[in-house]
């Protein structure tokens, strides 16, 4: 376990090295938050009845937090981009030679950078947003607990999705074309921008069939109070099921690739 922390800490240091980048990134996050804030305000003013009983502060909370957890549940950069880079450079061998399980090692790296981003890119803008906008605060301990668990499980689920996506690069060396598809799919099907209850009925079965609903929609809808009591528990258990399922599949696929892996040069 202590090895896990060593890898995590290393990743933390790497991420916190550039200060100007940090401030510009915060500014960028605040701009995106303002854009979604304005978007939902305009839409709510136009047709409040289309929100199906969800209040404006609840909606703003969902949208702002959706933007913010986007910076810790990241599809643009993560374990997949790391694997791809290492495979391409032929340096993946150094990762494989380490006397640590590869998946555990990758998870530790990802955890470190996630915590860094949580501390620097999620908490400060969230505090600013609470000062600026009218947003809901979950008060019941059960809801807070539900949110924390949901967020943790969401991170694990996305980690395994990213991990398996990154494994493609062992076959193709490059993720370029695929990554656009993956990025677009996660963005659309996870409910990060638009809450999934607003999607047309025809799409609902597809959304339920994909793990991405568990990544953004579940923690966000628990936080803003749309998923309560029994529906919250169902959503959390669905997440757990996805987590275990994806873990098993990732292990199987990785085992196969690892056994037949030939690294050229280096």
């Amino acid at each position: 376990m202590s090895l896990f922390w060593i890898f995590s800490r290393q990743s933390f240091y790497q991420q916190s090295a550039y200060r100007l980048n940090f401030w510009l990134e915060i500014a960028g996050v605040m701009l995106q938050i303002y854009v979604v804030y304005k978007l939902w305000n305009v839409l709510f003013e136009q047709t409040p009845q289309s929100f199906g009983g969800v209040s404006l502060p609840q909606m703003i909370t969902y949208a702002v937090l959706g933007m913010l957890i986007g910076s810790i549940l990241n599809t643009g950069e993560g374990v997949h981009t790391y694997i791809q880079q290492q495979v391409r450079m032929g340096q993946i061998t150094t990762d494989l030679m380490k006397p640590v399980d590869f998946i555990v090692h990758m998870m530790a790296r990802d955890f470190g950078s996630m915590i860094t981003r949580l501390v620097f890119l999620l908490v400060p803008p969230l505090a600013i947003s609470y000062l600026l906008f009218d947003m809901v605060i979950p008060t019941s301990p059960l809801r807070i607990f539900g949110f924390v668990v949901a967020l943790a499980q969401a991170w694990v689920i996305l980690f395994f999705c990213n991990f398996m996506f990154g494994l493609i690069s062992f076959k193709t060396l490059d993720l370029m074309g695929f990554s656009f598809t993956y990025f677009a799919l996660v963005r659309f099907a996870s409910g990060q921008i638009v809450p999934l209850w607003m999607y047309p009925d025809v799409l609902q079965p597809v959304l339920n069939f994909l793990p991405f609903k568990s990544v953004f929609y579940t923690p966000l809808a628990i936080y803003n109070g749309v998923l309560t009591s029994s529906s919250m528990w169902t959503a959390l258990l669905t997440q757990t099921a996805w987590m275990i399922g994806l873990f098993v599949v990732a292990r199987l696929i990785w085992g196969r690739i690892h056994n037949s892996l030939i690294v050229q040069g280096g």
Partner: peptide
Amino acid sequence: MGIIGVFILNAGTLATSWVL
């Protein structure tokens, strides 16, 4: 592969607008 990727990426953004 790149062209297909670009199509899907933009389709994704437009799909979100369509849902809204």
